[in-house]
């Protein structure tokens, strides 16, 4: 293969990555299978111009996704020790789907549970650009403000973006609040199996989470340990910006070890509000089916007039509340590695 031309400007965080002592908060949200189908058909099942030999579909049964926030205090390249070690916080929406291989006889075989990540917000430019240019994630640079110092069973995180409140041809991007998550009263649990039995409606999700070691004490019967993530990696043409000069499906794998400090939050204990603006409306409609704000003004923690937190983001926006089924948090060490390029489209 052709060598990449290295320079001071290309010192990205190269995979595989190792994150030590990561703190994760994950909130399970129910959503319509039609939303997953639309996303999968647009990103993975289309003809670009050829079709990948895979069929992606929602997993059978009720659909649950995870809105996740992870603080990585110490993340670095596993194979490039002289390059930077970073710290960052990421917030992303992710859910499991079913991938089946299409044979030459047009049979669907080899069903595999993989995860997709329709959007990711991150506060570190190195991570954003490495995620976009190498992994193919749809990552966006954001301001993430997390309240420090609460008890282990409390959590408050806000996210801001440069965005437009109301679009017009002369709109100027300004820092706007986009997400507020607050959770209180979490309970430390040690027996995941018992928790799963107490919530039969969530058995499938708990089973997948347990098998992927996102829950301490993995379950059986699910996929092998770790999470398989599929991204559509695509790069725009410089002349025709609607065209891609490269498009491929990249499969990566994350493995969590030393999972500890598991805390579970009941859904009623979690405030999860997206702040409504024209910049975010399309994403909220496509991902969650929310077509308008569900409540007036910001959450009670944020003044509509003031600018709050280190991000100095505006909060005088209406909000769309997203019901949370349950949430959980834990600490772990995480290894991220690219497995393979599943399919390169003939652009």
């Amino acid at each position: 293969m052709t060598a990449f031309v290295e320079s001071f400007a290309t010192q990205q965080l190269l995979p595989p990555w190792i994150s030590k002592g990561a703190q994760s908060w994950m909130f399970a949200v129910a959503f319509d299978a039609a939303r997953a189908t639309a996303y999968l058909n647009s990103y993975f099942n289309g003809f670009y111009p050829d079709r990948a030999p895979f069929e992606y579909s929602p997993i059978p049964g009720p659909q649950y996704g995870l809105l996740c926030a992870t603080y990585h205090p110490d993340i670095s390249c596993l194979n490039y020790a002289h390059w930077d070690t970073l710290s960052h916080t990421e917030v992303y929406w992710s859910y499991p789907v079913l991938r089946r291989t299409i044979t030459e006889d047009h049979l669907l075989v080899d069903p595999t549970v993989v995860w997709v990540e329709p959007f990711m917000l991150d506060d570190n430019p190195s991570i954003v650009f490495s995620s976009r240019e190498i992994w193919g994630s749809d990552a966006t640079l954001a301001t993430v403000v997390r309240k420090m110092g609460p008890a282990p069973n409390q959590f408050h995180l806000d996210v801001g973006l440069n965005a437009v409140r109301k679009y017009s041809p002369r709109s100027v991007y300004k820092p706007l609040a986009v997400l507020h998550i607050k959770a209180e009263g979490g309970q430390r649990i040690t027996d995941v199996a018992q928790f799963g039995q107490s919530r039969p409606d969530l058995a499938q999700l708990v089973n997948i989470l347990g098998a992927s070691a996102q829950f301490a004490g993995g379950q059986t019967g699910g996929p092998p340990g770790g999470v398989l993530l599929n991204n559509l990696k695509q790069i725009r043409d410089a002349y025709d910006l609607r065209a891609a000069i490269y498009r491929a499906i990249v499969e990566s794998h994350s493995t969590r070890t030393d999972v500890d400090n598991l805390v579970v939050y009941e859904g009623a204990e979690v405030e999860l509000d997206f702040m409504w603006s024209d910049s975010l409306a399309e994403t909220l409609t496509e991902m969650f089916g929310i077509k308008a704000p569900t409540a007036a003004g910001p959450p009670s923690d944020h003044s509509a007039k003031g600018r709050v937190g280190a991000g100095h983001m505006a909060w005088d926006l209406d909000r769309a509340h997203l019901p949370v089924v349950f949430g959980f948090s834990f600490t772990s060490n995480v290894t991220y590695e690219v497995v393979r390029t599943l399919h390169t489209y003939g652009v």
Binding site: M1, T2, F4, Q12, P15, E133, I235, A238, V338, V339
Partner: peptide, 20 residues
């Protein structure tokens, strides 16, 4: 500028290189 894209599996290799 030299526009280039890293390979995901072997990031020391390029999938695309052009002058823009």
């Amino acid at each position: 500028s030299l526009k280039q894209i890293r390979d995901a599996v072997d990031p020391s290799k390029a999938l695309y290189q052009s002058l823009v």
